[in-house]
């Protein structure tokens, strides 16, 4: 009985500690951005936004952010990629949801066909990274991001 208890305790302890390691994810942001832009059928050229402007579009406390990169369209499309490394994953996810909602409202009256891209935006959480990709091929975007 004592032996079984010891085995179970050790196993549980190992599982808990190993589980913590899921947060220790490092993503090569530059490589991911390059691959997404090369592989996905973006209609417009995406360019990076200056960090001060990013916080105007994504309501995130900069103190929680370890790194943040956003590439967006000229205005002709709703296409966008965001990679946020943060200590508050839930805050980042909420900010992304608000960004998508803003884009839906903006494009609904302006360019309704762009709203299609916003029906299934790809949002992936990996460790302390939250990644957004709005494109015409959500399935492919998700496959690419999941590899990292």
């Amino acid at each position: 009985m004592k032996t079984k208890l010891l085995i179970i305790t050790l196993l549980l302890l190992s599982l808990v500690l190993s589980g913590c390691n899921q947060k220790n994810v490092e993503i090569d942001t530059e490589q991911l951005l390059e691959e997404l832009q090369e592989q996905l059928p973006f209609a417009d050229q995406l360019s990076p936004i200056k960090e001060n402007m990013i916080y105007h579009l994504y309501p995130i406390d900069s103190k929680n952010v370890m790194s943040i990169t956003v590439l967006t369209s000229s205005g002709a499309t709703a296409e966008e990629i965001a990679i946020i490394q943060t200590s508050d994953v839930e805050e980042a996810k909420k900010a992304i949801d608000q960004r998508i909602e803003t884009k839906r409202n903006d494009f609904a009256n302006y360019l309704p066909k762009e709203v299609e891209k916003l029906k299934d935006p790809v949002i992936v959480t990996k460790g302390n990274y939250v990644i957004l990709c709005i494109s015409d091929d959500s399935e492919k975007a998700r496959t690419i991001i999941e590899k990292y």
């Binding site: 302890l13 500690l17 390691n21 220790n24 370890m66 790194s67």
Partner: peptide, 28 residues
């Protein structure tokens, strides 16, 4: 326990690195 502890040490190192310095966004 050794395997699990190794994993935890790696996690702690990355937390300490974040506390020391935020990684600035790379220029794309």
């Amino acid at each position: 326990l050794t395997i699990a502890t190794y994993s935890t040490i790696s996690l702690s190192s990355s937390i300490l690195a974040w506390n020391d310095k935020k990684t600035p966004p790379k220029d794309i």
